[in-house]
Design a protein around this nucleic acid. Sequence first.
DNA 1: GGCCGAGCCCTAGAAAAACTTGGGGCTCCA
DNA 2: TGGAGCCCCAAGTTTTTCTAGGGCTCGGCC
Lengths: 318, 318
Amino acid sequence: MPLAPPRPRLPPHTAVRAFEAAARHGSFARAAEELFVTPAAVAQQIKALETWAGGALFERHSQGIRLSAHGRRALPALSAAVDQLGLAVQALRHETQTAARRSTLQVAALPAMAQLWLSPRLSRLKAALPGVQVSVTALEQPPNFRREPFDLGLFYARAGDRIEAAVGAQGMVLARDRLVPVCSPRLQQALPSGRPRVLDDLIDVLARCGGLHDTVWHDDWARWLQAARPGTTAAEADALAAGPDFSLYSLALQAALDGEGVLMGREQLVAPLLAQGRLHAPWGRPKALGDTLMLLVPAHRKGPLLAQQVQALQALAG
Amino acid sequence: MPLAPPRPRLPPHTAVRAFEAAARHGSFARAAEELFVTPAAVAQQIKALETWAGGALFERHSQGIRLSAHGRRALPALSAAVDQLGLAVQALRHETQTAARRSTLQVAALPAMAQLWLSPRLSRLKAALPGVQVSVTALEQPPNFRREPFDLGLFYARAGDRIEAAVGAQGMVLARDRLVPVCSPRLQQALPSGRPRVLDDLIDVLARCGGLHDTVWHDDWARWLQAARPGTTAAEADALAAGPDFSLYSLALQAALDGEGVLMGREQLVAPLLAQGRLHAPWGRPKALGDTLMLLVPAHRKGPLLAQQVQALQALAG
DNA sequence: GGCCGAGCCCTAGAAAAACTTGGGGCTCCA
DNA sequence: TGGAGCCCCAAGTTTTTCTAGGGCTCGGCC
């Protein structure tokens, strides 16, 4: 006769989160990345969950894992529940913060946008939002607004991208951006720029100094070149603009300022430098290729406070 | 310029749970009870959550707490989310357990029902469910099936009670129970039972030996007496059946077996002892006062496995 | 055919989180 | 006026979670 055992418990929440992320990504390693822990931690949590569930949740293969059939069936409800909980917890905060007006604005932004677009506008933003503490977090990818307590996002979208829905946000176009090759004035003057057509001239320059790249917008050069010289293949374009690669756009930009090569500039980000004359754009007019600066607003957020913040940011873009 | 701060995080899940329980109960102490921790632990978690939220969630008064208005607005969504998560996690387990047929049946039961009703039937239940590991947990109150991983519940309901919905369960009547005063044969024989009317006789006996009580069904004597002698007030009834109080029904029953007094018997629970002659019920026929043995089944559970288990239990009641 | 590199697993020990203990203060009620 | 019921706070302890570091297996690439 089994006597009263310790009350049966649900598995710890960390284990559930680990499973949810691993199942969604199909990889412990990527789940670990999302959760900011080591893969070993994820593996441990999942093993604990499997013990609790009484069966394996993943098939282990040496090149990776595969979600089991039962896991796959249970996943959607689980993900939805985690989302819901995140939303509810955020609602709790926002309920209390609108009451006490001691509010902080958490902004998630692409590193380049944080530094080159938002930073110069920050003082104006603060002026427009008195009493609001602004906090900026640089992220390579838009966060899931259902699960992370950000109030706004600043990211780029390409024409046709529907990033908003995937992260529980509503997107608003802040500005349409254009691409234009830029370099330092020194570099420009050091080069014999005698070619009659600017595009040929640019290609000469690229051949000598190379193009500057960053990892996020690695294909900007190719996109621009393909638009400028219809018929160019991606491979040809890559070859033409071969050059150093930087992990951050701002590093590539710094290299351009230092005269290390030609950068494919995003007009919205380099405009102040062009205006100051610290960068030149001698190879024709900027091209609009469908890139837009997007303001992402959590789809679940409401209220006058947020509206005011959104308005303030939109004003900065105008 | 604020540089990238540590990524903003949601508060830990324990804090959310603590808040949810405290808000629901309107008391840290009762929340602590629900969560099986000390009140201080709850207070700490809630303080952490308040820090995160940037404002107080409860008004502290010296005689207790009161949920703030913002907390009250956010609570329903939060409770629902916690429920959902619990459901999803349980679904995960059941998905895997039906696949691998290595299943365990977690039964929650009132202590008295576990010991006096289920225990004698356990071997038959196991025979009916080959390969199923049965585990019984004694609980004073039905658990919330949305949040605790029980498969079945065995509890009493009174006529009109709707316990099922509150705990996310579907209720099925296993049997209608009746109340009947019982005592040990020895006690009965030791008493001069000459009164012509059994009720008067019983009252004499009670006056001498007292009634035996347990905390869960403390008012059984009063209910029975009020039914047997219409017009009796609750206070009078309590006075008539005054006697020792036991924290568990089975202790009171043991006292009755030892001839310590008269117990208000629940027929379904004492039937085997009456049949064996270890208890007598000389004061009239059992009275049905609307008590029913209920089988509680998680409302969210489906599938042939559970159906089979339910059927097996219902067969035991017949 | 041998040598990466990508993934996952394991274990021991470190770090962080959660909980308990014990002492205090405040009200309400008897 | 004293006890009981609540909540708060500050250590100190236990439990949970995570990291580090070493293995293993596979697939792709010289």
